[in-house]
């Protein structure tokens, strides 16, 4: 309980390097790419389609099939050690013919490096990509949010369900460009649905089954849970 941890220091893999300074006069395009960029092209020549440097930040485009393999390597390789997953998100462009991009922002604390990895997903058939939850636990909620907002299914995520929108939300995925700013349904329809909700249904069916409270539920409710029904519907 009172066992003390050894302090982990950022930049520990590069102790002799000069201390980092605030960026200045950053070029729009071009500039020196991250040291990882060359290594990853050598290691995965087939998976990396291109690398670019925008405003001093290196972006690596990889194929959607190779996500798990490349990410595992970035995390484990002793010369990369990207141990901190800053962000998982997606970008859909206004030009609807452009593919959706899934974006990971990675940091290597030992090397003080920052890397952006992108995978381009064609909009059809289904938006599916591998989850990196098995590598970084921080991907849990960020992938859930990305699914909630864009409808991208992360294969291998242990609990992929809506997070910001509610379970019965029927209007689709709000951050998609074809989703209108005020929602798909009219205000009156949204109000009608809100009023039609059962305020007593405060637990999800899954939650009701985890505890022994299940035994105390009325018969018909237990039947509905067993048949896979959801609360509030």
């Amino acid at each position: 309980m009172t066992e003390k941890f050894d302090v982990v220091r950022a930049g520990s893999a590069v102790p002799d390097s000069a201390p980092p300074v605030s960026p200045r006069n950053v070029q729009h395009r071009g500039g020196e790419p991250n040291a990882t960029a060359r290594a990853i092209v050598e290691r995965f020549p087939g998976a990396v389609s291109r690398t670019e440097v925008v405003w001093g930040e290196t972006t690596i485009f990889i194929s959607p099939e190779s996500v798990l393999e490349v990410m595992q390597w970035l995390h484990d390789d002793p010369a990369q050690r990207y141990d901190f997953l800053s962000d998982v998100t997606a970008v859909e462009y206004r030009d609807l013919d452009q593919p959706i991009e899934v974006v990971w922002h990675l940091r290597s604390l030992p090397f003080r490096r920052f890397l952006r990895v992108k995978a381009q997903l064609p909009k059809r058939p289904a938006l599916e990509i591998a989850s990196v939850w098995s590598i970084w636990k921080s991907a849990d909620w960020m992938e859930r949010e990305c699914y909630d907002m864009f409808g991208i299914r992360f294969i291998g995520h242990p609990d992929l369900r809506r997070i910001l929108m509610w379970e019965q939300y029927k209007e689709g995925f709000p951050l998609r460009k074809d989703f209108p700013l005020r929602g798909r349904f009219s205000r009156s329809e949204q109000l009608r649905q809100a009023l039609a909700q059962n305020p007593e249904a405060k637990y999800s069916m899954e939650e009701l089954t985890i505890a022994d409270a299940f035994e105390d539920l009325p018969d018909d409710m237990r039947r509905r849970i067993n048949s896979g029904a959801r609360t509030g519907e």
């Binding site: 302090v7 982990v8 220091r9 300074v21 800053s86 970084w136 921080s138 960020m142």
Partner: peptide
């Protein structure tokens, strides 16, 4: 510390777990 980094904690949460990572120092 390993859990904290893997779960993506940052700020005082991360530093309390013994990881000396501060954006102001490491990516100023």
């Amino acid at each position: 510390p390993d859990e904290a980094i893997n779960w993506g904690l940052s700020g005082p949460m991360l530093r309390a777990s013994g990881v000396a990572y501060d954006v102001r120092k490491d990516f100023p």
